[in-house]
Design a protein around this nucleic acid. Sequence first.
RNA 1: GUGGGUGUAGCUCAACUGGUUAGAGCAUCGGACUGUGGCUCCGAGGGUUGAGGGUUCAAGUCCCUUCACUCACCCCA
Length: 477
Amino acid sequence: MGEQFIGPRGTNDLFPPETQKWVFVEEIIRRKAESFGFQEIRTPIFEHTELFSRGIGEGTDIAAKEMYTFIDKGGRSITLRPELTAPAVRAYLQNFPMPGTRIQDGRKILQGSPPFVKWCYFGPAFRYERPQSGRYRQFHQFGVEAIGSKHPDLDIEVIQFALQVFKSFFLENLEVKLNSIGCSSCRPSYREVLRKHFYDHLEQLCEDCKTHRYEKNPLRILDCKSQKCAPFILGSPIPIDYLCEECKTHFNAVQHRLKELQVPYSLDPRLVRGLDYYTKTVFEVISGSLGAQNSVCGGGRYDDLIETLGGPSVPAVGFAAGMERLMLLIQDNLPGFKKAPLLYAVPLGEKAEDFMVPLIFRLREEAEMKKIRLHIERDYQGKNLSAQLKEASRLRADFAVILGENELNEKKLILKNLNTRKQEDLPLNSIENSQENLKNISNQILEKITVFLEEIKTFEKKFDPVLELKEKINHGK
RNA sequence: GUGGGUGUAGCUCAACUGGUUAGAGCAUCGGACUGUGGCUCCGAGGGUUGAGGGUUCAAGUCCCUUCACUCACCCCA
C-alpha cells in the first residue's frame, strides 16, 4: 500500500452530505440565536497559553495535560484553544471599554456598569485526549456567553436557548441537570467543611482524590466516579446547604423561573464541572443515547473569571455544546437535501467545446439573474456521447445539452430532458459565440428548463425538510 | 496516560483445526453499442493480508514488538 498520509489522530474529514448537514444545523442555531439576541463573534483559534492556564485553572485536567501548546518563532508560548469561554472574555476585555475603576484592597472596583454583551460562537477546539465515540482531538463547539450582568434571568435565558436549539431538532430524552456551587465568599467555608468530612477517610480515597483533589479543589471529589470514593461521597455535605445568602437567593430565583417556565430539570448536588471558573449556577444537558460521552452541553455562571483574567469584577454566564455530539444525536433525523437541478453539457469535439464553454459561462450568469437555481456540469475527459450521457445519469442530471459535429452543421443544439427521455432541437442563429448569440440561446434553454422545473417544484413541496423531519419523528419511536 | 476489541482489494466481508497461485459482492475502467444514459452480458485492473521480527518443511492463521482504528476508564463538548 505504500506510505500514505493519514490525518492526525482524533481529527475528522467532512464530506457532502455531512458538510451540508453541518451548514444546515449551524444555520438553524444562528436563527435561534438571533431571536435571543446572541450575536455571533469569532475569536482566534490560538491564544497565549497563560490565558487558559489561568482561566480554566492550573490544576484542571484540561490545563494540566490536554492542551496543544507550542512555542512560536518569537518564543511565545501559544495554545490551541481547548474551550471558547476564556477567549471570549479576553476579547471582551480587550475591545470593550470599561467605565472608570478604582483600586481597593488590590482589586479593581468598577465605578459604573460594565459593558453588557450577549454573544454566540461556533468553532473548533482542541484537546489532547484519547479519542472515542463523541470525543475527538479537534472537535467543534457552539455556545453563548452573556457578559456584564448577574441577573438570574440570564442564567435562565442561556439554559432556555440551549433547550430551544435542541428542540428545533426534535430531540427528546434529554435531561437537564442543575446545581449551584457557590461563590468566592461562601465556597471557602464549604471547602473546609468538605475537607473535614473527607479527612478521616483520606487514606481510603482513590489516588487522584487523595493526592490532588483534596488539597487543590475538594469539590471535585464529589464528581469522582471511583468505587473507592463512592461510599464517602454519599454521606458528604453538599454545596447548596452551604450557600451564602446571595447565592441562595440567586439559586432560588433560577429554580423559580425554571418551574414557572415548566422546564423539566433535576438537581444534582454532585455536579461541579471540570473547569475552575464556575460560580453559582452550573448545568449540564445529557443524553442517554450518546454512549460514555453523554454530555451534549455544559455551562454555568463564571462571575470571577473576568477578574481572574486581569479585568474588574464582571459577572457572566454561558454554555458550550458539542457539535459532533449534537450531530450524532440528530443526523439520522435530518432530511435529505435538495440539490440544485443539474444540467449536463455534452460537447463533442473541439469545435463544440469552443462554443460550449462560453455558453456554459453565460448560462450560469443568466440563470443567476433569473434566480433559477441550476448546477451546470460537463465532462473534462473527452468521453464519447454514450459515456457522457452515462455519466450524466450517474450524477442524476435532469437535463443534457448536446452539441456535436452534426448539430454545428445544422446550426442547432439538442436539449434533452433526462427524466422523460424526450429531447428537442433548439435552432441556433449562428455558431458564433458572440454575447448576443449566447444570451439568446441561454434564454431559450432556461425557458424550457423553467417549465420542467415548475412541474418538479409542485412535486417537491411534499419534501419540505422541516415537514419531513417532523413526520419522521412522529412516525418513528 | 490505562485496559478490552479489531486490522485481508477503494468499500463490505470470505479463506475449516497452520497446507499449493489469498477469493466474492459492490465500486472503478474497458468492450458488446465508431452519436443517445440508469438495464443486461463479457472482460480487465487493483493485495508486500497495517508494519517489523520470530516459531515452522510451510504463517492471513501461532508468538513477540510496534502502529492505526474502535470502545471503555479518566475527563469533558
